[in-house]
């Protein structure tokens, strides 16, 4: 491609997990705080909670012509269903990040690099709020991939999460970053 290298990320789970917001936070971090280009798209079922949800982000140094993720470099699966549905699209050699609390059945093939963390359990046990699992995940993702800088992610979270929850979410991000450091 004549265009600079770009990264395609798909985050999938079910409605109510904050999957769409996670994609928005990532895209906003890239555009507003790292001065990169990004596109975020989403899809979900008609029901507001519980149905399948998917958020996709493309991050690039250059302008992005095609806004849709076709072969993600990174797949984040926050549910069994999401893994079943989207694993086939993952680029060979790509990164698979899963919530090991929610995804138990892993495929035998190893054509990707697997990272697994019990995001939802940590969220529940350490924060008393399952909803911050998505931000812990973003911390891990940032730590592992450096798609965006930690500072950009921090700023993006501050401006994206509901007022009054900033501190908890920043702690959740830090938690994720720390998890990523452990080999």
């Amino acid at each position: 491609m004549s265009k600079a290298k770009k990264a395609e990320i798909r985050i999938a789970g079910f409605g109510g997990q904050g999957v769409v917001l996670a994609g928005v936070i990532l895209g906003r971090a890239a555009v507003l705080y790292d001065k990169k280009k990004a596109v975020q798209t989403q899809s979900y079922g008609a029901e507001a909670r519980g149905g399948g949800a998917r958020s996709e982000v493309i991050i690039s140094e250059d302008s992005i012509d095609y806004p849709k993720v076709m072969r993600p470099d990174i797949l984040v699966a926050m549910s069994e269903q999401a893994l079943d549905k989207y694993l086939k699209d993952l680029k060979p050699g790509g990164v698979l990040l899963i919530d090991s609390e929610l995804v138990k059945n892993l495929p035998p093939e190893q054509r990707f690099t697997l990272y697994k963390f019990p995001f939802s359990r940590i969220a529940n046990d350490e924060f008393g709020r399952t909803i911050v699992a998505n931000v812990i995940m973003l911390g891990v993702l940032t730590g592992l991939t450096r798609l965006v800088s930690f500072e950009a992610m921090k700023s993006s979270i501050k401006t994206s999460v509901p007022k009054g929850t900033e501190e908890m979410n920043l702690k959740a991000l830090k938690k994720g970053m720390d998890l990523a450091k452990v080999p």
Binding site: V24, V39, Q40, T41, I64, P67
Partner: peptide, 9 residues
């Protein structure tokens, strides 16, 4: 729906 819901700079 694609352009309406997509987020960009």
């Amino acid at each position: 729906a694609f352009v309406g819901h997509m987020r960009e700079e």
